[in-house]
């Protein structure tokens, strides 16, 4: 199969998944019984202007599929409608909040990669020994700390008791923002470090037991070389796959951390919009997260043949 055909196939699958997801996001509103106008205007005064505005924005007088097409056309042009609480375009509201969340996710992602890989590699190279057990126990305990628990413990210890870091807000300017985001990104990273650490360890351990590793050793390659060129190289596939799945979780979990630390990011916007019944914003953020997840995983999918040449041939990956 040519690379082109394969990539085209993946792209098709990506678009199909996104299409189905958009159906789910859009038509979920129709699951709620009752009048769509009053659903969208829950908790607000159904003034004639408001009703007219919502009706016009959603084309509520049109048949559902027409509503969907209009909405989708807008979304594809970056128009997610208007926020009910801010009386602003949804895209603007989200745009304002995006930098904090992106920064948070990037910082947490870096920690996850560094700490998770290190823990997994160290454990696997000492498998069965004390260090391995210590890492495993550590991971099991860390893995049980939900990000909101991590957040409040970090606030209590490092912000309130020690006063090293701020406990609230996202700061001004790049460096200040990074400083404000240290504790939040740790809180966000904890659970994901565990997942990456565990999959790294098991993937490495599996490869260490493979015969080709013994062959490489028998040929007089240094242990470090064997680990790098044969064990770690071959473990990348599963690690990357798991990391891809984590992306969506990371974006959602960031809303918890943002709420705990009072950061003005996408996550708090999502929670706030749910709280204040601002459905257009909820819809837009959900779609954004889902799209990020699907795109990242599609990229990993496309990269697979470079990671495992057998995938290109369509041979059963073993």
């Amino acid at each position: 199969m040519t690379t082109f055909r394969r990539v085209a196939g993946k792209l098709g699958a990506l678009l199909l998944t996104l299409f189905l997801a958009s159906l789910l996001v859009f038509f979920s509103r129709f699951l709620v019984p009752g009048d769509p106008v009053s659903f969208l205007l829950r908790g607000r005064k159904p003034s004639p202007e408001a009703v007219a505005q919502v009706t016009a924005q959603y084309g509520l007088d049109l048949p559902p599929w027409q509503q969907y097409l209009n909405w989708l056309t807008g979304v594809l042009q970056g128009d997610f409608g208007r926020s009910l609480q801010y009386r602003q375009d949804v895209s603007e509201v989200i745009g304002d909040r995006l930098p904090v969340t992106l920064m948070l996710v990037v910082m947490a992602g870096t920690m996850i990669a560094v700490v998770g890989l290190t823990a997994g590699i160290v454990a696997s190279l000492n498998r069965g020994k004390v260090l391995d057990r210590a890492v495993l126990i550590g991971l099991t305990v860390l893995g049980a700390i939900p990000s909101f628990v991590g957040s409040i413990v970090l606030i209590a210890v490092f912000a309130v008791q020690l006063g090293w870091f701020p406990s609230f807000g996202s700061g001004e300017g790049f460096l200040d923002m990074a400083y404000h985001l240290v504790l939040p990104s740790i809180a966000l990273a904890i659970v994901f470090v565990v997942l990456v650490g565990k999959v790294t360890r098991s993937s490495m351990v599996e490869q260490l037991g493979r015969e080709h590793v013994e062959v490489a050793t028998s040929r007089g390659l240094k242990r470090g070389t064997v680990i790098r060129r044969h064990v770690f190289r071959n473990s990348i596939g599963p690690i990357l796959t798991v990391s891809g799945v984590l992306v969506a979780g990371l974006l959602v979990a960031s809303s918890i951390v943002e709420a705990a630390f009072g950061l003005a990011g996408i996550g708090t916007l999502l929670v706030q919009s749910v709280d204040r019944l601002d459905f257009p914003v909820v819809q837009a953020i959900v779609l954004l997260i889902v799209t990020a997840f699907v795109v990242v995983n599609a990229i990993i999918d496309v990269l697979e043949p470079w990671i495992d040449p057998r995938a290109a041939a369509g041979a059963g990956a073993r």
């Binding site: 997801a21 789910l24 509103r29 749910v274 959900v286």
Partner: peptide, 23 residues
């Protein structure tokens, strides 16, 4: 498999938050 793939794109917590937004 295709249906599962679509649901996988919605993390559980996100789906729960969406459910709260709706109901």
């Amino acid at each position: 498999g295709r249906i599962f793939d679509v649901i996988f794109a919605f993390p559980a917590l996100l789906l729960a938050i969406m459910a709260v937004a709706l109901f």
